[in-house]
Protein backbone atom coordinates (compact mmCIF):
# COMPACT_ATOMS: atom_id res chain seq x y z
CA UNK A 1 0.00 0.00 0.00
CA UNK A 2 1.25 3.47 -0.82
CA UNK A 3 2.18 5.59 2.21
CA UNK A 4 -0.14 8.43 1.21
CA UNK A 5 -3.18 6.20 0.87
CA UNK A 6 -4.19 5.78 4.57
CA UNK A 7 -4.18 9.51 5.41
CA UNK A 8 -6.02 10.39 2.19
CA UNK A 9 -8.66 7.72 2.85
CA UNK A 10 -9.14 8.85 6.45
CA UNK A 11 -9.32 12.48 5.37
CA UNK A 12 -11.91 11.65 2.70
CA UNK A 13 -14.05 9.74 5.19
CA UNK A 14 -13.93 12.58 7.71
CA UNK A 15 -15.00 15.10 5.08
CA UNK A 16 -17.86 12.84 4.10
CA UNK A 17 -19.01 12.38 7.71
CA UNK A 18 -18.77 16.14 8.20
CA UNK A 19 -20.83 16.90 5.09
CA UNK A 20 -23.51 14.34 5.94
CA UNK A 21 -23.72 15.45 9.59
CA UNK A 22 -24.19 19.10 8.68
CA UNK A 23 -27.13 18.21 6.43
CA UNK A 24 -28.56 15.54 8.71
CA UNK A 25 -28.54 17.63 11.89
CA UNK A 26 -29.29 20.86 10.12
CA UNK A 27 -26.32 22.67 11.71
CA UNK A 28 -26.42 26.43 11.03
CA UNK A 29 -23.83 27.74 8.59
CA UNK A 30 -22.36 30.23 11.07
CA UNK A 31 -21.51 27.40 13.49
CA UNK A 32 -20.16 24.75 11.15
CA UNK A 33 -20.42 25.16 7.39
CA UNK A 34 -20.50 22.02 5.27
CA UNK A 35 -17.34 21.18 3.28
CA UNK A 36 -19.19 22.03 0.07
CA UNK A 37 -19.97 25.49 1.48
CA UNK A 38 -16.30 25.94 2.41
CA UNK A 39 -15.29 24.85 -1.09
CA UNK A 40 -17.75 27.38 -2.47
CA UNK A 41 -16.27 30.16 -0.34
CA UNK A 42 -12.79 29.11 -1.41
CA UNK A 43 -13.78 29.33 -5.05
CA UNK A 44 -15.62 32.65 -4.76
CA UNK A 45 -12.77 34.35 -2.92
CA UNK A 46 -9.91 32.66 -4.74
CA UNK A 47 -8.50 35.84 -6.27
CA UNK A 48 -8.66 37.60 -2.92
CA UNK A 49 -7.05 34.66 -1.14
CA UNK A 50 -4.28 34.41 -3.70
CA UNK A 51 -3.25 38.03 -3.11
CA UNK A 52 -3.53 37.67 0.66
CA UNK A 53 -1.73 34.31 0.68
CA UNK A 54 1.16 35.71 -1.31
CA UNK A 55 1.42 38.65 1.12
CA UNK A 56 1.65 36.27 4.09
CA UNK A 57 4.07 34.00 2.24
CA UNK A 58 6.26 36.99 1.46
CA UNK A 59 6.47 37.99 5.14
CA UNK A 60 7.11 34.35 6.10
CA UNK A 61 9.97 33.87 3.65
CA UNK A 62 11.63 37.20 4.41
CA UNK A 63 11.45 36.44 8.14
CA UNK A 64 12.83 32.95 7.52
CA UNK A 65 15.68 34.40 5.50
CA UNK A 66 16.56 36.77 8.31
CA UNK A 67 16.23 33.92 10.82
CA UNK A 68 18.77 31.85 8.89
CA UNK A 69 21.11 34.78 8.51
CA UNK A 70 20.91 35.87 12.14
CA UNK A 71 21.03 32.28 13.38
CA UNK A 72 24.23 31.61 11.44
CA UNK A 73 25.88 34.90 12.41
CA UNK A 74 24.98 34.52 16.09
CA UNK A 75 26.10 30.91 16.24
CA UNK A 76 29.40 31.79 14.62
CA UNK A 77 29.84 34.61 17.11
CA UNK A 78 28.99 32.25 19.98
CA UNK A 79 31.47 29.65 18.84
CA UNK A 80 34.23 32.20 18.31
CA UNK A 81 33.74 34.01 21.61
CA UNK A 82 32.77 32.18 24.76
CA UNK A 83 32.05 35.51 26.44
CA UNK A 84 29.61 36.53 23.73
CA UNK A 85 27.91 33.16 23.93
CA UNK A 86 27.50 33.34 27.68
CA UNK A 87 26.22 36.91 27.42
CA UNK A 88 23.75 36.44 24.59
CA UNK A 89 22.40 32.94 25.01
CA UNK A 90 20.14 33.77 27.98
CA UNK A 91 18.65 36.65 25.99
CA UNK A 92 17.94 34.30 23.13
CA UNK A 93 16.16 31.97 25.57
CA UNK A 94 14.10 34.83 27.01
CA UNK A 95 13.03 35.77 23.47
CA UNK A 96 12.12 32.17 22.77
CA UNK A 97 10.03 31.48 25.87
CA UNK A 98 8.13 34.77 25.86
CA UNK A 99 4.86 34.12 24.00
CA UNK A 100 5.09 35.88 20.68
CA UNK A 101 1.47 37.13 20.95
CA UNK A 102 2.38 39.17 23.99
CA UNK A 103 5.42 40.80 22.40
CA UNK A 104 3.75 41.51 19.10
CA UNK A 105 1.75 44.61 20.22
CA UNK A 106 4.93 46.23 21.55
CA UNK A 107 6.76 45.67 18.31
CA UNK A 108 3.81 47.03 16.39
CA UNK A 109 3.91 50.17 18.51
CA UNK A 110 7.67 50.60 18.13
CA UNK A 111 8.00 49.76 14.47
CA UNK A 112 4.58 49.15 13.03
CA UNK A 113 3.02 52.59 13.05
CA UNK A 114 4.98 53.73 10.03
CA UNK A 115 6.07 50.37 8.61
CA UNK A 116 3.62 47.57 9.35
CA UNK A 117 5.52 45.15 7.08
CA UNK A 118 8.70 45.62 9.06
CA UNK A 119 6.89 44.88 12.29
CA UNK A 120 5.35 41.75 10.79
CA UNK A 121 8.76 40.52 9.63
CA UNK A 122 10.31 41.18 13.03
CA UNK A 123 7.56 39.24 14.82
CA UNK A 124 7.77 36.31 12.40
CA UNK A 125 11.57 36.38 12.70
CA UNK A 126 11.32 36.21 16.50
CA UNK A 127 9.19 33.10 16.19
CA UNK A 128 11.49 31.45 13.67
CA UNK A 129 15.06 32.10 14.61
CA UNK A 130 15.51 30.09 17.81
CA UNK A 131 15.39 26.55 16.32
CA UNK A 132 18.02 27.60 13.80
CA UNK A 133 20.26 28.92 16.55
CA UNK A 134 19.93 25.87 18.81
CA UNK A 135 20.15 23.36 15.98
CA UNK A 136 23.25 24.96 14.58
CA UNK A 137 24.84 25.15 18.02
CA UNK A 138 24.12 21.45 18.50
CA UNK A 139 25.52 20.75 15.03
CA UNK A 140 28.77 22.54 15.75
CA UNK A 141 29.31 20.19 18.69
CA UNK A 142 28.56 17.01 16.70
CA UNK A 143 31.93 16.68 15.06
CA UNK A 144 33.31 13.16 14.75
CA UNK A 145 36.07 13.01 17.41
CA UNK A 146 38.27 10.83 15.20
CA UNK A 147 38.20 13.51 12.52
CA UNK A 148 39.13 16.09 15.16
CA UNK A 149 42.13 13.88 16.00
CA UNK A 150 43.04 13.72 12.34
CA UNK A 151 42.99 17.51 12.05
CA UNK A 152 45.05 17.84 15.23
CA UNK A 153 47.54 15.29 13.97
CA UNK A 154 48.24 17.34 10.86
CA UNK A 155 48.41 20.59 12.82
CA UNK A 156 45.36 22.13 11.21
CA UNK A 157 44.87 25.79 12.06
CA UNK A 158 41.77 26.93 13.90
CA UNK A 159 40.29 28.25 10.65
CA UNK A 160 41.04 25.07 8.73
CA UNK A 161 39.40 23.05 11.44
CA UNK A 162 36.35 25.30 11.43
CA UNK A 163 35.79 25.63 7.69
CA UNK A 164 36.87 22.16 6.62
CA UNK A 165 35.46 20.15 9.52
CA UNK A 166 33.18 21.82 12.05
CA UNK A 167 31.06 23.87 9.66
CA UNK A 168 30.32 21.11 7.12
CA UNK A 169 29.49 18.77 10.01
CA UNK A 170 26.88 21.26 11.22
CA UNK A 171 25.13 21.82 7.87
CA UNK A 172 22.61 18.96 8.29
CA UNK A 173 21.61 20.46 11.63
CA UNK A 174 21.18 23.89 10.06
CA UNK A 175 18.93 22.41 7.38
CA UNK A 176 16.84 20.55 9.96
CA UNK A 177 16.49 23.83 11.85
CA UNK A 178 15.34 25.68 8.72
CA UNK A 179 12.72 23.00 8.12
CA UNK A 180 11.26 23.48 11.61
CA UNK A 181 11.54 27.26 11.42
CA UNK A 182 9.67 27.51 8.13
CA UNK A 183 6.47 26.48 9.93
CA UNK A 184 7.22 28.75 12.88
CA UNK A 185 7.83 31.72 10.59
CA UNK A 186 4.37 31.20 9.10
CA UNK A 187 2.85 31.00 12.59
CA UNK A 188 4.75 34.16 13.53
CA UNK A 189 3.51 35.96 10.41
CA UNK A 190 -0.09 34.98 11.13
CA UNK A 191 0.15 36.02 14.78
CA UNK A 192 1.61 39.34 13.69
CA UNK A 193 -1.18 39.93 11.21
CA UNK A 194 -3.81 39.08 13.84
CA UNK A 195 -2.30 41.54 16.30
CA UNK A 196 -1.86 44.19 13.64
CA UNK A 197 -5.54 43.80 12.81
CA UNK A 198 -6.77 46.21 10.21
CA UNK A 199 -3.64 48.34 10.49
CA UNK A 200 -2.81 48.15 6.84
CA UNK A 201 -2.47 44.41 6.95
CA UNK A 202 -3.10 42.60 3.70
CA UNK A 203 -2.34 38.99 4.63
CA UNK A 204 -4.38 35.86 5.01
CA UNK A 205 -4.81 36.19 8.77
CA UNK A 206 -6.49 39.52 8.28
CA UNK A 207 -8.87 37.94 5.72
CA UNK A 208 -9.82 35.32 8.32
CA UNK A 209 -10.29 37.93 11.03
CA UNK A 210 -12.40 40.07 8.75
CA UNK A 211 -14.57 37.12 7.72
CA UNK A 212 -15.01 36.26 11.41
CA UNK A 213 -16.18 39.78 12.22
CA UNK A 214 -18.81 39.44 9.52
CA UNK A 215 -19.77 35.91 10.61
CA UNK A 216 -18.73 34.58 7.18
CA UNK A 217 -17.74 31.27 8.71
CA UNK A 218 -17.29 29.35 5.41
CA UNK A 219 -14.79 32.01 4.33
CA UNK A 220 -12.97 31.65 7.66
CA UNK A 221 -12.66 27.92 7.06
CA UNK A 222 -11.45 28.53 3.52
CA UNK A 223 -8.73 30.87 4.80
CA UNK A 224 -7.72 28.32 7.42
CA UNK A 225 -7.40 25.62 4.81
CA UNK A 226 -5.13 27.80 2.72
CA UNK A 227 -2.97 28.59 5.76
CA UNK A 228 -2.59 24.89 6.63
CA UNK A 229 -1.83 24.06 3.02
CA UNK A 230 0.85 26.75 2.96
CA UNK A 231 2.42 25.35 6.14
CA UNK A 232 2.43 21.83 4.73
CA UNK A 233 3.89 22.93 1.40
CA UNK A 234 6.61 24.95 3.14
CA UNK A 235 7.50 22.00 5.35
CA UNK A 236 7.75 19.59 2.43
CA UNK A 237 9.71 22.05 0.30
CA UNK A 238 12.31 22.48 3.00
CA UNK A 239 12.31 18.73 3.72
CA UNK A 240 13.08 18.12 0.06
CA UNK A 241 15.78 20.79 0.07
CA UNK A 242 17.28 19.14 3.16
CA UNK A 243 17.24 15.71 1.52
CA UNK A 244 18.88 16.97 -1.65
CA UNK A 245 21.60 18.98 0.09
CA UNK A 246 22.34 16.31 2.70
CA UNK A 247 22.55 13.76 -0.10
CA UNK A 248 24.96 15.94 -2.05
CA UNK A 249 27.10 16.42 1.02
CA UNK A 250 27.20 12.66 1.44
CA UNK A 251 26.42 12.95 5.15
CA UNK A 252 23.68 11.54 7.29
CA UNK A 253 20.87 13.97 8.11
CA UNK A 254 20.54 15.39 11.59
CA UNK A 255 18.22 13.55 13.92
CA UNK A 256 16.13 16.20 15.60
Amino acid sequence: MKAWLPPVLLFGCLILVWEVSVWAFDIPKFLLPAPTAVAGALWENSADFLVAGLATLRITLIALGFAVLSGVVLTLAFSLSRFLGQALYPIAIVLQVTPIVSVAPLILIWVGIDHVDRALVIIAWLAAFFPILTNLMTGLRQVDPTLVDLFRLYKASRWQRFWMLTWPSAIPYLLAGVKISSGLALIGAVVAEFVAGSGGSTGLAWRILEAGNRLQVPKMFAGLIILSAMGVVLFYCFSALERVLVGRLGVRGAVT
Binding site: D144, T146, L147, D149, L150, F151, L153, Y154, K155, A156, Q160, M164, L165, P168, L249, G250, V251, R252
Partner: peptide, 29 residues
Protein backbone atom coordinates in the same frame (compact mmCIF):
# COMPACT_ATOMS: atom_id res chain seq x y z
CA UNK B 1 57.12 14.82 11.85
CA UNK B 2 53.47 13.96 12.38
CA UNK B 3 53.10 10.21 11.79
CA UNK B 4 50.34 8.86 9.61
CA UNK B 5 47.50 7.40 11.66
CA UNK B 6 45.05 4.81 10.41
CA UNK B 7 42.14 4.84 12.82
CA UNK B 8 39.69 2.12 13.71
CA UNK B 9 37.11 3.63 11.41
CA UNK B 10 38.38 5.04 8.15
CA UNK B 11 37.94 8.62 9.43
CA UNK B 12 37.11 10.16 6.06
CA UNK B 13 35.36 13.48 5.52
CA UNK B 14 31.94 12.35 4.25
CA UNK B 15 31.42 15.44 2.10
CA UNK B 16 34.81 15.27 0.39
CA UNK B 17 35.70 13.07 -2.57
CA UNK B 18 38.13 10.19 -2.20
CA UNK B 19 40.96 12.22 -3.75
CA UNK B 20 40.28 15.22 -1.51
CA UNK B 21 40.37 12.93 1.50
CA UNK B 22 43.70 11.49 0.44
CA UNK B 23 45.06 14.99 -0.16
CA UNK B 24 43.85 16.27 3.21
CA UNK B 25 47.09 15.89 5.22
CA UNK B 26 49.16 17.82 2.68
CA UNK B 27 46.44 20.45 2.40
CA UNK B 28 46.37 20.91 6.16
CA UNK B 29 50.10 20.89 6.78
Amino acid sequence: TAPAFVFQDAALLPWASVEDNVALPSRLS
